[in-house]
């Protein structure tokens, strides 16, 4: 389980990026691809403890799950996958190793309290 070290790097990345801003951080939006190797439940589980005593304390973690998208050569189109157990075009059945989305593990944005 490496979700705790993932959260710690979320905390340090956000803290560093927001160091010049005094506003309170309310929410962190994280993009998590289906192939990122990270499980949302485990991220949420550790978030409160890992953010305690940091500028992220009290903030909410919002996880946006991204499905795998492959490029199907046969259809010449991008196709969204239902899971990660099969990498076949859902329309024509051709296997594809050309993955265009699904490995993301990215801090998309931070919601802050606007200074009055």
């Amino acid at each position: 389980m490496h979700e705790l070290s993932i959260i710690q790097s979320v905390v340090s990345t956000v803290t560093e990026a927001m160091s010049a801003r005094p506003e309170r951080i309310l929410r962190v939006r994280l993009l998590v691809g289906a192939l990122s190797g990270v499980v949302e439940g485990a991220l949420q589980f550790g978030y409160e403890i890992a953010t305690d005593g940091t500028p992220l304390a009290g903030s909410k973690l919002e996880v946006v799950s991204l499905p795998v998208v492959i490029y199907c050569k046969h259809c010449e189109a991008l196709r969204e996958m239902e899971g990660v157990q099969s990498f076949r075009c859902p329309v024509c059945g051709t296997p594809s190793g050309d993955i265009r989305q699904g490995r993301e593990l990215e801090i998309e944005s931070v919601e802050i309290e606007e200074a009055a």
Binding site: T13, V14, I107, S109
Partner: peptide
């Protein structure tokens, strides 16, 4: 309370 969204777009494992 008014809030604002700040785009970061930073990979969590960027350092690695």
């Amino acid at each position: 309370m008014t809030t604002r969204i700040v785009e970061l777009r930073k990979g969590v494992l960027k350092k690695n």
